[in-house]
């Protein structure tokens, strides 16, 4: 019997509001939920970076890589590196993670589901398996890391980052459809299909509850738009 899961429909939002909503969903939604971001504006042009990254290093890397373009820099609740959201398909997944366990296996499970979803739609991908690596990359898409989803040519297509809080997990993922020669809609279908089959989930469209939305608004104002959070180190 498939598990009921929420496919959350949310409005177009900026980066701080997206991060806030993910954390509010992590705190306030039981079971499995999947949410594809809709970015405010024609293209997002925002940068998110990992919870432990140094702001000055992020800022320097962003300026070096993307020049002086003005765009919000928002610290995520998850680990990982810098992600420039400039046409990627960004999505988040919250799920039960009741027992402390190897995050590498959780990461692999999610990306394996995506791999199978793409395969079902006739798109070839693979999980990157170079063996052990040292540390993590400052920029998420500067190259694949273990268990990232890559194209047959080995180009990174999907990377993500995780957070575990009170027995629940949050995955925030960024997918580059153009690497796989697909569009955003087909990629979205692949993610939903893969998770539905691999995690035996029956996704039903839903909107966040009023309580989750209110909590997200609070987190946006108090945390994700604040220098205290974004420049905390």
């Amino acid at each position: 019997m498939p598990t009921r899961a929420l496919l959350l429909e949310t409005p177009a939002l900026g980066a701080a509001a997206q991060m806030a909503l993910d954390e509010a969903v992590l705190e306030g939604v039981e079971g499995l939920s999947l949410r594809f971001y809709r970015w405010a504006g024609p293209v997002p042009h925002a940068v998110t970076f990992g919870i432990s990254q140094e702001y000055d290093a992020v800022l320097a890397a962003v300026r070096e890589r993307w020049g002086g373009a003005s765009m919000p820099l928002v610290r995520r609740a998850t680990g990982g590196g810098i992600v420039h959201h400039d046409g990627d398909l960004t999505f988040s997944l919250t799920f039960p993670w009741p027992t402390l366990s190897d995050p590498g296996l959780v990461y692999k499970d999610i990306h394996l589901a995506a791999h199978l979803g793409f395969k079902a739609l006739g798109v070839e991908t693979a999980l990157w398996s170079p063996g052990r690596t040292e540390g993590f990359r400052l920029q998420c898409f500067s190259g694949p890391e273990p268990k990232d989803l890559v194209s047959p040519a080995g180009v990174k297509a999907l990377g993500g980052a995780l957070r575990r809080l009170r027995g629940r997990g949050l995955y925030q993922g960024s997918l580059r459809p153009e690497v796989l020669g697909t569009g955003a809609e087909l990629s979205r279908q692949a993610i939903v299909e893969g998770l539905s089959v691999s995690w035996k989930a029956l996704f039903e469209p839903a909107e966040p509850s009023a309580a989750v939305s209110a909590r997200a608004e609070e987190l946006r104002r108090q945390r994700y738009e604040s220098d205290r959070w974004n420049r905390r180190r």
Partner: peptide
């Protein structure tokens, strides 16, 4: 590792620190 500052009052069960490994952060 993100640790609480000296002087902070904490309550039993409260998430007070974050330990990050490659790709994942744990409360």
């Amino acid at each position: 590792v993100d640790l609480p500052k000296a002087g902070r009052a904490v309550t039993q069960g409260e998430a007070v620190a974050v330990v990050e490994s490659v790709k994942a952060a744990f409360d």
